[in-house]
Simulated assay, not measured.
Amino acid sequence: MFRKSGYAGTSMQDIANELGIKPASLYNHISSKQDILVELLSFGANLFVDGMKEIKSSKVNELQKLERLIALHLRITVEHTDLMALIAVEWRHLEGEGLREYLKLRNSYENDFRIILKGAMENGLIHAMDIEIAFFSILTTLKWFYSWYDKHSQLSMVDIEEYLKQLLLGGLKI
């Protein structure tokens, strides 16, 4: 519902109606719409953080880690397309501690991504270039992949993954 109507455009009444319950019954389980958003975005952020931990600890070089990060994004997008829409857009509605925790997880993930990218450059696996431009280009493509995937979900994920690896990293490979 948050993806279809936006966080601001979805009411607790709408959520209750969708679930087929009365709003009062909904409030027996959650205290606010904000709690739902926090729960969803925390779940999503942790998918990325957990994936990053696994990738960071793997015994492969930084280029292979970047390839695994691309695969991680694609897998999460395919398995949780609506969640990716929330991560891309609706996180801005988070407040207070929920916002602080979400940003902590996101910043941790992004910093680890930059470290891997920098390592790939320093080890001569990809061309040295401005890390922020490379980071922005790769992550922006992956972040918004969900909006493209909706219209192209009939394509093979194996092919999509290979094409995106070539596109996003091919220009950087030495």
Rank of each mutant, 00 (worst) to 15 (best):
Q166R: 11
K33G: 00
L94I: 02
K65H: 02
Y27G: 10
L26V: 05
H29W: 13
V78W: 00
G96F: 03
H127T: 15
K151R: 15
V49M: 08
Y102P: 02
N46K: 03
E101A: 15
L37C: 07
F135W: 04
L168T: 03
S42I: 07
R68S: 15
G96Q: 06
E18T: 15
S147I: 06
I160A: 08
A45H: 02
H152K: 09
Y163D: 09
R3K: 14
K59A: 15
Y163R: 13
L167V: 13
S57F: 06
S5N: 12
D130G: 07
F2N: 04
L83P: 00
A45L: 02
K22C: 15
I115K: 13
N107S: 08
V60P: 07
E122P: 07
E90Q: 01
D130V: 05
D14L: 09
A71P: 01
A45Q: 10
S108D: 14
S31V: 14
E54N: 11
L99A: 15
F2W: 01
G98N: 11
Y146C: 02
F135Y: 11
F113N: 03
S25R: 13
I126F: 00
L103F: 08
L26W: 05
G20L: 09
S153N: 12
M84A: 07
N17D: 15
G119A: 03
T81G: 04
E90L: 00
N28S: 12
I30G: 10
F43S: 10
S137N: 13
L94T: 10
E95K: 15
R106P: 02
L168M: 09
L168S: 00
S42Y: 10
R92Q: 13
W148F: 05
A16T: 06
H80I: 04
L167I: 12
Y146V: 07
Y27R: 03
Q64K: 03
L74R: 05
L19W: 10
I116G: 00
N46P: 06
Y149H: 00
G170A: 01
R114Y: 09
M52S: 10
N46F: 09
K59V: 13
E162V: 04
L72T: 00
S25P: 14
S57R: 12
N111Q: 14
H80Q: 01
G44N: 03
L169Y: 06
H29N: 14
L40V: 05
E161T: 03
G170R: 08
L99P: 14
L94N: 09
E161G: 05
